[in-house]
Design a protein around this nucleic acid. Structure first.
Lengths: 220, 220
DNA sequence: CTAACGTTTTTCCAACTGGTCAAATTTCCC
DNA sequence: GGGAAATTTGACCAGTTGGAAAAACGTTAG
C-alpha cells in the first residue's frame, strides 16, 4: 500500500521527493479546482466536479489531495502571495503619482489575467474568510499598515492630496477587482459592442482619471 | 390535503389570498435564507440550514416554498428593485456634483444597512448571474444607459469632468459595495480601533474626496 | 527481468441532500 | 363548539456527497 498521499497530508513539513506524475497531476487538479471553487465557493463545489474537470476519477484525485479542504487551502495560499505582490512593489522612494498609477494598472491587469483567482478570493471574503482570516489580520494588515505609512508621508510632503490612506487602498482594490468579480454585470451593461476586450483599456483610462483628478471640474 | 403551496408555486400569476401565518412565516424564511445564501451561495446553502435558521423543520419550510430555487428567486427579485432605486433617483435636473455625492452616499448606506443583500448579489455575480442575467441585460442595462446619457450631458455642459460614464457608475458600485462584500477584510486591515462603526463615516469622507477631487494635488 | 514502488480503478459506505407523503395537530370561521 | 381548512410533524426516499479500502495495473531502478 502506498503511503505518499498520507505522508504528504500528515507530514507536510518534511515533503517527500515528488515524482514527475505527482507534480503534473497536482497542477492539473489545482487548475481544475480553481475553476470550480471560483464559481461555486467551497461548499458549493464538489470533488466529483473538480475530478471531472481535471479529467480523472474521484478516488484518483483523492490520491493526490486527501481532502477537499487541502485543495482549497493550497489554492488560497498560492493566491495570497501573488495577490499581495503589487502592493509590495509600491516604492516609497518613487514618485507618488506614478507609483499609484502603476499600482492601479497592475491590479487591473491581474483582474484581467487572473479573474478566477480574484473570484476565489471574493468567495472566501463573502464567507467571512474562514480559511484566510489569519493572513488578513497578520500579513495583510502589516503590509497595508506599512504602505499606509508611505502614503501618509507623501501626503505630509504635499505630494498627494491629504485623505485616508487605508480607504484609498480599499478603493483601488474595489475598483480593479470589480472587473473580475462582477464581470458578468460589466459585460451585460456595456453590451456586445463595448463589452469586448477593450473594456479593460477603457477602465484603465477611466480609473487613472478618477484617481488622479476626480470628477469636479476645476474652478477657473 | 392542502393545495396552497402547490398553487402558489404553479400559479404565481394569480396568488391566493394569504393568511397571516403565511405572510409571517414567509418573511421569517426569507430572512433566514438571506443569511445563508449570502454566506454560502446558492449551491452551498442547504434547506436544512435555512430551516434551522428560520426555526422550523425542513418539511415545514417546504410547505411554504416548494423548492429551494423559489426562495432564492424571490430573494433576488426583491433585492433587484431596491438595489436599483438609488440610481433611479439620480436627477437630470439637479446639480451634477450634489447628485453624484448623494448617489454615492445612498449606495454606501445600503452597503452598511443591507450587507447581506449585497453579498447575495455578489454571490450571484460570481456564479455568472444564472438567475439574474435577464435583468442585467434588460432592466439594468436600460437604466444605466439612461443615466450614462445624463452624465454625458453634464460633461458636455462642462459641469463634470469628461470621462467614461459607464465606468464611473461601475466605480461607484465597486467602492461602496466593497464595504459590504469584503467587510471581513476591511475590518481585519483596519484593526480593532479603526474597524468599528466609524469606518463607514471614514469611507464616506474618503469617497467624497476621491470622486470629487482625486488624489493629485493641484498645481499652484 | 523483476521486485518494489507508484498509480489507477472498482467497489463500497455512511452521512447528507432536496424533496414527498400521509397522519397528526392547530387555527379559524360559522 | 364543531368542522373545514391550514399548518406542522415524522417517517421516508432516491440521488449525491466526501471519503476509505483494496485490488489491479504501470513504472522504474537495480
Amino acid at each position: 500500500m502506498n503511503e505518499i498521499g498520507k505522508l504528504r497530508a500528515a507530514d507536510a513539513a518534511r515533503p517527500r521527493a515528488e515524482t514527475r506524475i505527482q507534480r503534473e497531476k497536482q497542477e492539473v487538479i489545482l487548475a481544475a479546482a480553481l475553476d470550480v471553487f471560483a464559481q461555486h465557493g467551497f461548499r458549493g463545489a464538489t470533488i466529483d466536479q473538480i475530478a471531472e474537470a481535471a479529467g480523472m476519477s474521484k478516488p484518483n484525485l483523492l490520491y493526490y489531495f486527501a481532502r477537499k479542504e487541502d485543495i482549497h487551502k493550497q489554492l488560497l495560499a498560492r493566491l495570497l502571495t501573488t495577490w499581495l505582490a503589487p502592493l509590495h512593489e509600491l516604492n516609497a522612494a518613487g514618485d507618488p503619482i506614478s507609483e499609484l498609477r502603476s499600482y492601479i494598472r497592475k491590479k487591473l491587469e491581474m483582474a484581467r489575467d487572473f479573474p478566477r483567482e480574484s473570484r476565489l478570493f471574493a468567495n472566501e471574503m463573502l464567507q467571512g474568510a474562514p480559511h484566510a482570516i489569519d493572513v488578513l489580520e497578520g500579513e495583510l494588515k502589516a503590509l497595508v499598515d506599512d504602505k499606509a505609512g508611505v502614503l501618509l508621508r507623501w501626503m505630509d510632503e504635499g505630494r498627494l492630496n491629504r485623505t485616508d490612506p487605508y480607504h484609498l487602498i480599499f478603493s483601488i482594490w474595489a475598483t480593479t477587482q470589480h472587473y473580475a468579480d462582477f464581470d458578468v454585470q460589466v459585460r451585460a451593461v456595456l453590451g456586445p459592442e463595448r463589452g469586448g476586450e477593450g473594456r479593460f483599456e477603457d477602465a484603465a483610462r477611466y480609473l487613472e482619471h478618477l484617481f488622479m483628478d476626480g470628477l469636479r471640474p476645476k474652478a477657473r
